[in-house]
């Protein structure tokens, strides 16, 4: 029973979405199924929040290693939730001046805006910027001309790296007009449009068929491992 009901729901949802694509009468059903998932996912935020509190409060109470980070996490979570949900420091909407909570929670100058502007924004930007450092380190360590394929990849990487900047224009500006296709900036476009597109299409076709086959296995209940196995 524990396995059968989810499989029935999965199969129903999946086949409705497939049928809705071909039968005009059922087109609205697909949208409804999509909205149901949104409703479920929204409720899951509460589940996530509850689990976050449970795990970190337990860490703090057990004084596990790194419990200080848990304390910071809980404090930041509760404070952000409070100023966001409470719309602290938010001005009323001009259409509804009588209602203090009618304004946007993102009002400039409100505590929530401050948190976003001076904590969230720089922190996430920092994490993303770290990619530049990791790419450099990975390039130094992993890009080796071990065989013909690797040499081709390295050559392509050089062309793209140069062709995507002014260095490419500068290095091959001397080429005559009849060799314009070999200018690095044009070669970059050709590689992206022809070789990259061809390779990507091959990978995408494989992935698409893999997705179709996996989805079908899930819908038919052939693959139940995500539910914890085949036993009912």
């Amino acid at each position: 029973m524990k396995r059968t009901v989810p499989i029935i729901i999965t199969a129903l949802g999946g086949f409705v979405l497939i049928i809705a694509y071909f039968i005009p009468r059922t087109q609205g059903w697909g949208e409804t199924a999509a909205i149901w998932f949104d409703v479920l996912a929204s409720i899951a935020f509460i589940l996530g929040g509850g689990n976050l509190l449970k795990i970190h409060l337990k860490k703090i109470s057990d004084q596990n290693s790194g419990w200080g980070y848990s304390a910071i996490t809980i404090t930041a979570f509760l404070f952000t939730l409070f100023v966001g949900l409470g719309k602290i420091g938010v001005n009323p909407n001009i259409q509804y001046p009588d209602f203090a909570w009618s304004g946007s929670y993102r009002t400039i100058g409100s505590p929530f805006w401050w948190l976003y502007e001076y904590a969230f924004k720089p922190l996430t930007a920092t994490m993303f910027a770290m990619l530049a450092f990791y790419v450099a380190s990975a390039a130094f360590r992993a890009f080796r001309a071990k065989n013909i394929e690797a040499i081709l990849l390295l050559g392509t990487a050089f062309i793209i790296l140069l062709g995507r900047t002014f260095a490419g224009v500068l290095l091959t500006s001397w080429l005559p007009d009849w060799l314009v296709g070999l200018k690095l900036e044009n070669l970059t476009v050709t590689i992206m449009k022809v070789f990259n597109t061809a390779g990507n299409r091959a990978i995408m076709i494989g992935i698409a068929l893999g997705i179709a086959s996996t989805s079908l296995k899930v819908l038919l209940g052939v693959d139940r491992t995500y539910l914890g196995g085949g036993e009912d």
């Binding site: 996912a41 995500y226 914890g228 196995g229």
Partner: peptide, 19 residues
């Protein structure tokens, strides 16, 4: 990074430990 994934993963791992 998703609460629903957590729930599913718990089910999956619990069943694997059981088997």
């Amino acid at each position: 990074s998703r609460a629903l994934v957590m729930t599913t993963a718990r089910e999956t791992v619990q069943a694997a430990f059981l088997s």
